[in-house]
Design a protein around this nucleic acid. Structure first.
Lengths: 118, 118
DNA sequence: CAGATACATCGACGTTCGTCAATATATTGA
DNA sequence: TCAATATATTGACGAACGTCGATGTATCTG
């Protein structure tokens, strides 16, 4: 997961605003790929709607119906992409959504018409 | 590619606004997966910035450096997802971006804070 | 220190996906 | 009708990805 660094640094240019270079396209695609997974979308959704806006792994394993290693894996992917913040408290690891990062992703999908409207 | 129908019909709920069900998560993920590919992002970008906002396959093969069948494949994926409109004129097939569909995708990634601001 | 709990990492397996060469289909023009 | 052009479809291959069981690591408790 080396893409993560790239994502954190310069992602994401608006796809429709100017012809996308090969490198830019890969960066944006990598960033979108993180979110283009049902399990990870549900994790974002569940954490965002949890009490206090945060949740530990133990709260997420059951509702998703996936194994604990799988949940941990997805949380790591999301955290590496900057979409989740991780905080260790005792033996629990609490995750919370980083909305700014999601907004950056949204920005990549802006349409020229919508930009003028805003 | 049966997902296409689903996408066209009811996609996409806001991920962070309410706990996402398994089915909804799969729908949104499928819709995002269409866009989470470097070649398809460049196609959207090139077509959007082409003269008249449209382009035929012959104009897209060279700049992407991919084979004609691969370009046709990606165009079909994008068109099936409703992100591109296809029009046959003579022996050429012209594609143009459907901005509304992209906006729908953006809507799925809205953050609660951003919704209030808007 | 020993056991239990919460989470991360590792290694492996099956599936999905992007890509291409080969071929099929369709439209134009001579 | 026949050749040429533009695009779509098919079949196959390799790489990437999601998933799991087994194991490792860290923290708390008695």
């Amino acid at each position: 997961m080396k893409l993560v660094q790239v994502i954190s640094e310069e992602c994401c240019p608006e796809v429709l605003s100017a012809p996308l270079g090969a490198g830019e396209a890969e960066d944006v695609a990598a960033a979108l790929k993180v979110v283009a997974d049902p399990a990870r979308l549900r994790l974002l959704s569940l954490i965002s709607n949890a009490e206090g806006g945060e949740a530990c792994v133990c709260n997420l394993t059951e509702p998703l119906g996936l194994s604990q290693p799988t949940i941990s894996h997805h949380l790591k992917v999301l955290a590496d992409a900057g979409l989740l913040a991780r905080e260790q408290r005792g033996r629990w690891a609490y995750y919370r959504v980083v909305p700014e990062r999601l907004e950056l992703l949204r920005g990549a999908l802006v349409t020229p018409a919508a930009s003028l409207t805003a």
